[in-house]
Amino acid sequence: MTTPTGGAAGVTLPTPDYGHVTDEVARETGRRNQIDIETYRGDLAAAFPPELRGRLDVLLFNPPYVVTDTEEISTTSLAATWAGGAHGREVLDRLLPEIPSLLSARGRFYLIALKENLRPDTPDDLLAAIPGMRGAIVVSRKCGRERLNVVCYTRTPSS
């Protein structure tokens, strides 16, 4: 999860054993693109203090979205970087309830999702899965064998 704030950003990576490698790759990618990236290792939004809540303008999340067995999520193997459990939603669904309190009034939340994660016409419709917010697919692209969607969530007018 990346929280760009203009000249700096925070990235959380939920994979204990591989965290340092992915952290360092993220920083190097930033360096080569003249973007100043800050990273830390943490579990989703758990390490954000209440003082920060309601103050994020943009939140990006590229979750582990691949449909797998639930057991793969908790392992410390490389699979933990992609394993999303049932419907590829188990890690993602842990974060979604926290989004409204993290974002500022006009804040946006961007998410990468596979078709399998979307679950339209079910009670678990991903586009309607955040209370007080609505998601829309803003980009959809085939990447190898995956079709990746970028979902953008904004607050619904009444909230």
Binding site: P16, H20, D23, Y40, G42, A46
Partner: peptide, 15 residues
């Protein structure tokens, strides 16, 4: 904090 990266991850018995 190592190589500039803080590690906020907790062990299973700490959460």
């Amino acid at each position: 904090i190592k190589k500039g990266i803080p590690n906020m991850l907790l062990d299973e018995d700490e959460v």
